[in-house]
Structure formats: structure tokens, C-alpha cells
């Protein structure tokens, strides 16, 4: 109490602690009810035998669900796919995004048009983007990729079945296409907040472009790279749309969200689906504790 009063401005903040808290409470209570309660239920159900197809078998299951999730081949595969998908998409789109951001940081005629073109993929609704890649680009009979091959090399051109041959890569490419603009936008904003007078001084002192990039630009960009990588990872880990649309989880592309969706929605195994959900959450918490620290430091810098 006393610290609050001391920190608050003498003229403004005489109101009690509850008056300060009041505006916060609706949002806080809403979030606790809508996001924390369901998760608690998930936690409880994960220790239960509960399959909607066998309603009479409901009961306490101990760690059975966790055991079956962690030993199930499909579940393990789903964990691996999730990691590959997330790391692949985030890394590739970060690097591509950085290259594009550096290119767009220069002043040239039509730069804002190029930037606008560049962000278009991110503004296509994810399901629509996945449909576009699946049907209009990858399709072996009438997709653009095979169409271009035949258009350039004639009738003897190889006609690949892109999704069947490389299911996971097909999904990664479609997602990289959508997420590169996201990375680019944040990194470009970072580049444009560089103090250019220092860079100019270094240039006058004879520093090469590479030296400036390596020793000045990159350190300055670091928090932006971390932020965009982290935010991208949060969204890509949870990706459902692309996996659902492009392969419907087939061909070994089911990631954890899809696996849980299937266990719950198709197999109606509520106990196992919940256990898988808990596993995802634990994994996310481990990653997040490391990641959050870096993000928080960035936000604190920004707000001085």
C-alpha cells in the first residue's frame, strides 16, 4: 500500500488500491475463466479414462493416458513433426525475412509498392492460402508448378506429385510463404529504428558494409529477431489450418494440434486427447520460460 501511494502522483493518485485494481478486474477475471479453467479441466480429464464411445468406462486412469501418449508411435511422430515444422518454418522465414528487410531498408523508387506486394501473403486467410497451395500450385494435374514445368520444358517435362512426394516440405514452403512477410515487417521496423548517424560515422571511419552489418546492425536487430522468432514460433507451433488443409494430417504430417484434434474429434478419446494437450502445454512452458525472458527485456527497453 505505502509503496503504491509513494509511487503514485500526489495530485492524481489518492484513490485506494481497489480503485486502481477495478479497471483491471473485468479483463483479468474474464481471462482466468475462459483460459485457465478449461485448462484445469483438461488436467483433470488427462488422468481419467474417458472415451465418449464407451460412456460406462469412465473413471480414474492414473498415468495411463500419459503413458500411452508418450509411447504411442503416432503421438511421438506428432511431437517430432511439430518440432520440425516449427523450427523449419521459423528459421527459414526469419532468414528470408531478414534478407528482404535489408533489401527494403534501402531507398529506391517504388519501395513502398514492393513492401506492399511483399506483405500480401500474410494477409491471405490461412485456410485460403493452404487451399491455394494445395490446389492451384501443388496439384499434379492442373497446379501451376507442374504447369510451368510443362510450359517451359514441353510435354516431356517431369510432372511431380509435390504433396505426396514431400508432404512435410510442402507444408513448410506454404507456411514460410505466409510467415516471411511477418518476420520482414518486424525486422524492417527494427532496421529503421537504427541511429543512422553512428552508422554514417563508422562508414566515414572506413568501416566496410559487412563490418557495419556484423558489428552494428546485427546487435541492434537482436531483440527484434528474438521477438519475431518467438511470436512466429507461438503461432506456428499451434498451426492447424495448413496441416488440416494440405494433407489432412496424412503422409506423416500430423502435428500435435492435429493429433489432439483427431484424438478428440474423431476418436472421441477425451482422456488421451487431454493428456496430449497437457504434454503440449508442458513443452510450451519449458520453451516459453526461456523465450519470455528475452521478450520481457525488449519490452522493458521499449517502455524505458
Amino acid at each position: 500500500m505505502s509503496t503504491v501511494a509513494a509511487r503514485g502522483d500526489s495530485a492524481l493518485g489518492r484513490a485506494g488500491a481497489w480503485a486502481r485494481r477495478a479497471p483491471l478486474l473485468p479483463a483479468l477475471i474474464f481471462m482466468i475463466i475462459v483460459t485457465q479453467l478449461p485448462f484445469l479441466v483438461t488436467l483433470v480429464v488427462s488422468f481419467m479414462n474417458w472415451n465418449a464411445y464407451y460412456p460406462n468406462d469412465r473413471g480414474f486412469a492414473g498415468l495411463d493416458n500419459f503413458q500411452s501418449v508418450l509411447t504411442d508411435v503416432n503421438a511421438r511422430k506428432a511431437i517430432l513433426v511439430t518440432v520440425l515444422l516449427t523450427v523449419g518454418v521459423v528459421l527459414i522465414s526469419l532468414i528470408l525475412g531478414l534478407i528482404v528487410a535489408l533489401l527494403l531498408d534501402r531507398k529506391f523508387r517504388g519501395r513502398s509498392i514492393a513492401r506492399t506486394l511483399m506483405i500480401t501473403p500474410f494477409l491471405v486467410v490461412p485456410v485460403a492460402a493452404a487451399l491455394l497451395w494445395k490446389h492451384a500450385l501443388y496439384n499434379p494435374e492442373y497446379g501451376l508448378l507442374n504447369g510451368l514445368l510443362r510450359g517451359i520444358f514441353g510435354d516431356s517435362a517431369p510432372q511431380k506429385d509435390w504433396i505426396t512426394d514431400n508432404p512435410l516440405i510442402s507444408i513448410v514452403v506454404a507456411l514460410v510463404w505466409q510467415w516471411t512477410p511477418f518476420m520482414m515487417l518486424i525486422l524492417l521496423a527494427g532496421l529503421q529504428s537504427r541511429p543512422m548517424d553512428v552508422v554514417e560515422a563508422a562508414r566515414i571511419d572506413g568501416a566496410s558494409s559487412w563490418q557495419i552489418f556484423r558489428n552494428m546492425t546485427l546487435p541492434h536487430l537482436r531483440p527484434y529477431i528474438e521477438l519475431s522468432g518467438l511470436l512466429g514460433a507461438i503461432y506456428v507451433v499451434q498451426n492447424f489450418d495448413a496441416v488440416f488443409t494440405i494433407t489432412s494430417g496424412g503422409l506423416g504430417t500430423a502435428n500435435l494440434p492435429y493429433f489432439i484434434y483427431q484424438t478428440f474429434y474423431t476418436a472421441h478419446d477425451y482422456g488421451r486427447a487431454s493428456a496430449a494437450g497437457v504434454v503440449v502445454v508442458i513443452g510450451t512452458i519449458i520453451i516459453a520460460t526461456f523465450a519470455l525472458r528475452t521478450v520481457l527485456s525488449l519490452f522493458q527497453e521499449e517502455s524505458r
Partner: peptide, 12 residues
């Protein structure tokens, strides 16, 4: 709460 995968709360 943004880190909490939505899919984990789907069933409840």
C-alpha cells in the same frame, strides 16, 4: 495465456 496452446483447452 498466449503461450497456452488453444488446442489444450478445446475439449473442456
Amino acid at each position: 495465456t498466449k503461450f497456452l496452446p488453444v488446442v489444450a483447452g478445446l475439449l473442456p
